[in-house]
Design a binder for these strands. Structure first.
Length: 286
DNA sequence: GTCCAGGTCTTCC
DNA sequence: GGAAGACATGGA
């Protein structure tokens, strides 16, 4: 039994539903009472209000820097959007449709693991796998009275103690050995995730690419969603199709050419542009 | 039943 | 160096 704690973040222009549904995070759940998740070991429930975002935790908080950092609620969205090419109709229509969509700043390990699990999986299925991992191997966290129990995403140290069979039992198929290798490399310290954020973008990407099962797309997701490299530009099937159709007359384009184009065309916050394009295409489909 | 999913790795030409 | 095929699983 715990005492709840509430905060109202007076942030404007924050589309919580779009942000949580845009394929960045897989462990957050939407209920009638709001979005619930775990950030740095703390259970938190978020709701959008006219005044901003309302946050509720199970335990009293001395400060809320951890949550503002996760939500990136101090980012001035207008100044980010102002860097987008003004004459790009496709992108501007995505901005209009998804106004308030934000990039979160996730824990690197959780983000890396989530996207290792993402290859050729629908987002709904990635969520199922991640939820199963939390339930089986995650550390329980305190929740308010009346709220069903919750657990954090399992640490690399915890997953490193498991076997490939344990992980396959979580329905992740051929991704199991990839996740296990990543967990062991991180747990042993051989891969220092905390240090990657201090490297230049290309050096950090090269380091992530040494992990089996991590290619350019997954690496870029981690670089963008966990480290906040503003120029990281994940190119998945949706974005590839959109770039080809909108900027290359539907003709096939080499991956390297696409990356070069994206960096040049979308500007200093290409990663943000990517997220608007991705979410707009996905929510606009039949 | 068939198709395909926020890919990546291996094999083969 | 680039084009296929394999890989597990389950939603649509």
């Amino acid at each position: 039994m715990t005492s709840r704690c509430e905060l109202c973040l007076p942030v404007a222009d924050y589309a919580l539903d779009a942000t949580m549904n845009s394929g960045q995070v897989f462990a957050w759940e939407h209920t009638r009472a709001g979005w619930t998740g775990v950030v740095r070991g703390r259970w938190v429930r978020l709701t959008a209000t006219p005044e901003g975002l309302r946050a509720e935790t199970a335990l009293p908080q001395r400060d809320w820097a951890w949550l503002r950092h996760f939500l990136q609620s101090d980012v001035d969205l207008a100044s980010v959007l102002a860097t987008f090419p003004a004459d790009d109709e496709q992108l501007q229509s995505a901005v209009t449709a998804c106004r308030g969509l934000r990039l979160l700043r996730q824990d690197p390990w959780e983000c890396l693991a989530g996207f290792i699990l993402s290859s050729t999986k629908q987002i709904v299925q990635i969520r199922q796998i991640v939820r199963g991992l939390c339930q089986r191997y995650g550390e329980p966290v305190a929740v308010p009275a009346g709220v069903s129990e919750a657990a954090a995403f399992p640490t690399a140290q915890r997953l490193a103690t498991l076997t490939e069979a344990d992980l396959r039992a979580c329905r992740m198929g051929f991704r199991a050995p990839y996740l296990l290798t990543a967990a062991r490399r991180v747990a042993s310290g051989e891969m220092n995730l905390a240090a990657l954020g201090n490297l230049p973008l290309d050096a950090a990407r090269d380091e992530l690419l040494t992990l089996p099962g991590v290619g350019e797309k997954i690496a870029d997701c981690v670089l963008l969603f966990a480290y906040g490299f503003p120029a990281a530009f994940p190119i998945d099937v949706w974005v590839r199709r959109a770039l080809r159709d909108c900027y290359f007359r539907g003709r096939p384009v080499r991956p390297e050419r696409l990356r070069e184009f994206a960096t040049r065309h979308f500007g200093s916050h290409a990663g943000y542009a990517q997220q608007y394009l991705f979410h707009h295409i996905r929510t606009g489909r039949r």
